[in-house]
Structures are given as C-alpha cells and as structure tokens.
Amino acid sequence: MATTYSAWLAVRKGEPAEAVQLKSDLPVPTTIPKNHVLVKVLATALNPVGYKLLRSMPNFVMGRPHPMEQDFAGVVADANGTDFKVGDRVFGASPSPKNGTLAEYTIIPADVLATIPPNISAVDASGLATVMLTAVQALKDLKLEKGQTVFINGGSSAVGWSAIQLAKAKGYRVVATASGKNKELLLGLGVDEFIDYTESPLAERLKSTPPSPQFNGILDAVGLTDPALYLNCAKYLAPGGRYLTAGTLPHSGAEWAGLIRQVLEGLLRPSWLGGVPRKFGAVAVKFKKQDLDDIRQLVADGSVKPIVDSVYTFDRDGVMRAYERLMTKRAVGKVVVKVADEQ
C-alpha cells in the first residue's frame, strides 16, 4: 500500500478555481479510529453543497484546510477489525464536511458504508449515498400509501430522479416537473405525469388547474427557490399531506432568510389570516447503515439505477471542469471525478 497520497483541499472561502488546491505527499494514515475503515478512493461524486459552503462559510467555521466533497466509492484498504474485508468494493458518504473524499484515501465510519452491487461500477456507485438517502428518508417522512400520488418538483435533479425511482418501486403514482428537454428521461424512469415548469409559473398553473384527486405529498427537490409553491399548496395538496423541501441552500444567506420568513409566515398564521393549512418540513439527511443497505439491494435488483452526467480526471484540469459543469446547474445525473482505475 502507498505511504503518501494526494487530496483536493478547501483552503479558503471563495470559488473552487481559487479556493481548492491539490495537496500531495500527505501521509496515508496508519492509526485509524475504532469502527472506522481506510478506503482507497476510486471515484468521488460532487454535490452542490460543497461549492456553496466554499463560497459562503468562513475558514473558522469550516475548519479549513480539509478535503472537499463527501460522496465516494472505493476499495477497503484497512478493515480495522470491522465486518468489512480488505479489497471489498464499497460506497458511502462522509458524515462530516471536514473529512472530505476528493482524495486518494479517506477514513470513513464503517456504519456509513455499504458494498457496491456487482451490477454497477465504482463510478456509478460514487454518487448514490447522499441523494438516495435524502430521497429514501423524504419518502418515509411523507408517509404515503401504495397507490397515492407524490408530486416531485425538480425531477431531473439528483434527489429528484432518485425519489422518482424509489417512489415507483414503492408503488406510488408520481407527478414530476423538469424542463421539456428532460421529459423523456423522466418518463423513462416511470413518471406517470410530466409537467414542464418552463411553460408557466408552476404554483399558478397548479392553483388554476388543481389535480383531482389532490397530491398526497410534495417533495420539492430544488430547495425552495419559489415559496409560492408552498404558500398556495392547499389548492393542490390534500388535507393531511406534507410539503418537504430537500434541495441545497440558495447562494445568498439573505435570500435564504427571506424565503424562510415567507414560509414561516404562511405556516404560523391561521388559515383565516392567509396561513397555509398544510405541514412543511425540510429533509436533513441521516447516514443510516440500514438505509444504505436497502439502497444497495434496490440497485442490485434493478429497481433503482444510478445516473451519471459526466466523468472527469483527478488532475487540476479535470477537477475544475467538474466544478464548472456542476455549477451550470444543467447536469442531469451525478458529476463524478474518477480518482483511480478499478483493478
């Protein structure tokens, strides 16, 4: 095994091109905490929260420098007395933003790892953990029954296409939004009804022509960019139904505060004063071993398929191009950096 490794570190607040640097000759850890394993990383999937924290949070809050990103797939290099074996192909996510995975090696708690299904590659597996866990836990929180309808706003986002597949596997009816160019993708995932959000303001469209019957749950996978979707949802979300937001924060802290203020006003006011008589919540992903194992099984039996938008190299040109692609917000599927070849 190598004695040194390289990692892409967040070194300061700013844009990736200026604030992310490659650090080489880092010592491969020889002392590993109990119930953790050392993983040789094969591929790392980027998440929007990575560059958004880089842009918005100062060093003293984030504890920089530290490796970027959290989702990955790799091979166990030191099982450290856990149930894993050296050579096991694994995927997962770092539960701490200060222990990133855009690196050749990383130390990860064993209870946030699962073995990669034999029918997919490490590149495919690298982006499964965070988005699939978010979708699994959101659908659990919506408490839907088989045959009921879930409305997924942002169906072509990573959380969106994950939730679509999971919802169909559970027997839910799915209505989802995306731009028209992604219609065939969503229909191919099993969406029962597609809405092109670019044709007209979404909340106005649903309010003027509400579904019959109403939706039983709403998952906003784009992160509450338009509070009107919640503020008007009594027109299209059934009584007892819940509205969940699961996207990452908008770029501006002031923008986020303004959106939350509008939502809270709608949530806390009585309905006769213009309040919204529907529950609102935000999904905070929890890294649970059982949920990861369930996701693995769904992928292994073909019920859920990972979607990869593009793959980039681990050098500076590749990593910067990967962040540029992610920041366009046009990626459909995960943006992946390939760190090493599978043996």
Rank of each mutant, 00 (worst) to 15 (best):
P250C: 07
P97M: 12
L144Q: 01
A7Q: 04
V49S: 14
W256D: 01
P29L: 11
V304H: 02
Y230W: 05
Q343L: 14
L267H: 14
P16E: 08
P118F: 12
Y197D: 07
S179T: 07
G253E: 01
A45I: 09
V336S: 00
V336T: 06
V76K: 04
V336Y: 01
T198K: 13
K286A: 12
L139C: 10
Y172N: 09
L128Y: 08
P67C: 08
V191L: 07
V285P: 11
A238I: 06
Y243D: 08
P95F: 10
P201A: 06
M1V: 07
L224K: 06
A10M: 14
R269L: 15
P250R: 03
V76R: 00
I108L: 12
M57E: 15
D124K: 02
P117R: 02
A17G: 03
A176V: 05
P65Q: 03
D192I: 11
T44S: 12
P95S: 05
K143C: 11
M1C: 04
K338E: 06
V263W: 00
H36C: 07
E204V: 04
Y230L: 12
Y230I: 09
A135V: 07
L46M: 02
R12K: 15
G81N: 05
V222D: 09
S121M: 09
R325D: 14
V332C: 10
I32Q: 00
A93G: 12
A340V: 10
R321W: 04
K338W: 01
A221R: 03
R321V: 05
P201F: 09
R269Q: 14
G147Y: 05
V335P: 07
A176M: 03
E18M: 04
K289I: 03
N119P: 05
R64I: 07
Q214G: 06
I260H: 03
K288I: 15
T3Q: 14
Y197F: 11
D141P: 00
V335C: 06
E184V: 11
A138H: 05
P270G: 05
V76F: 09
L264C: 02
G217A: 03
P306S: 10
